[in-house]
Design a binder for these strands. Structure first.
Length: 320
DNA sequence: CACTTGACCTGTCCGC
DNA sequence: TGCGGACAGGTCAAGT
């Protein structure tokens, strides 16, 4: 799913697209993922203005001028896609490589390039999409007619409307660790937090949002490869230098991925429906059978911490 | 406690 | 072409 770089990419996109807009209408029929009381929706969401789009870990925070916040977790397959304008017709249509100006266009994306398409695996895996689709769980309509769709194939995600002052008190926020890209997150603090779990393997520990925020399966594998550490290595077997290198490697891959607009494997698209290109730059993730860019050894895929795990068997020694 | 496993969902892919 | 099982970017809850 969206990990930190994907959520950050969406946050940046939405900041450009929905700031200052006013929510006019919300449609949903998804008690589990959008369990907000009808009364709260009417009172604090309908008519509310968007004042800020923030992020903490993999969670998006859309701040409202009613002192409420939309707290959104996309989990594995969630998407938050903004559609600028509702034109005539019933579909929006993209021509490969050029902006669609067809009068039959219905929903026109704010930016259109040949990358404007849903990812492979999305129900609308083609250059022609239609929103809402069968994965659309919540539709937000703004007062200017633009819309924002919360799509989620697997329904693991959720959207909650809660008082802004209470956001820090929800379970997720209470447990989540420091932001890896924050200036005051020093390597020493990273080492201290990781070492709390001396007997666990390192991949599991960095995937744990309580250790640090925002790392998921892609960037765990990429960071461990960068630091030449085997994912199954026990924390207690790693020295300070290795952990410092890992912290630095994680930061590097997160920053690179944000620059590339995140990783689109199957479902992820940004706020404008565009794929991210990080996976073209990935060193090991989803590259089993290919050569390690560092040493040429064939990359393998195994299971560590219950997750598909990609490693270079030579660079990341398994003698642990 | 800390660690592991299953559950939550829908869809795709792969082998028989 | 059908069917069963494994697997998918995340987190919890319930096991041991």
């Amino acid at each position: 799913m969206p990990e930190l770089p994907e959520v950050e990419t969406i946050r940046r996109g939405l900041s450009q697209l929905i700031l200052g807009k006013k929510i006019a209408k919300v449609s949903y029929d998804w008690p589990k993922g959008f369990p907000n009381a009808e009364g709260d929706v009417q009172q604090f969401l309908i008519g509310a203005g968007i004042t800020e789009v923030a992020r903490r870990a993999k969670v998006l925070l859309i701040e409202l001028d009613t002192k409420y916040s939309l707290v959104i977790h996309l989990k594995m397959t969630g998407q938050l896609v903004f559609v600028a304008k509702n034109l005539a017709g019933g579909r929006w249509k993209m021509e490969h490589g050029k902006r669609s100006t067809s009068p039959t266009t219905n929903y026109q994306l704010a930016t259109t390039t040949d990358e404007v398409r849903f990812g492979a695996g999305h129900p609308n895996d083609s250059l022609i999409g239609e929103l809402p689709d069968k994965t659309t769980r919540v539709t937000f309509e703004f007062s200017d007619g633009s819309r924002m769709f919360f799509n989620d194939q697997r329904k693991f995600g959720w959207v909650r409307l809660i008082p802004t002052a209470e956001v820090p008190n929800i379970d997720f926020m209470k447990k989540v660790g420091p932001e890896p890209l924050s200036d005051d997150f020093a390597p020493a603090l990273f080492r201290e937090r990781v070492r709390r779990r001396a007997n666990s393997n390192i991949k599991e520990v960095i995937l744990d949002q309580a250790t640090l925020a925002g790392i998921g399966n892609i960037y765990a594998d990429e960071g461990l490869w960068g630091a030449k550490i085997h994912p199954a290595a026990l924390v207690k077997s790693l020295n300070d230098k290795q952990l410092n290198t890992l912290f630095s490697a994680l930061r590097t891959v997160l920053e690179l991925s944000i620059e590339k607009g995140g990783s689109s494997d199957k479902n992820y698209v940004d706020a404008e429906g565009k794929r991210g290109s990080y996976l073209s730059f990935a060193n090991v993730f989803r590259r089993e059978g290919q050569e390690c860019p560092r040493c040429g050894t064939t990359i393998i895929k195994t299971r560590v911490a219950g997750r598909g795990t990609h490693t270079c068997p030579k660079c990341q020694r398994a003698d642990i």
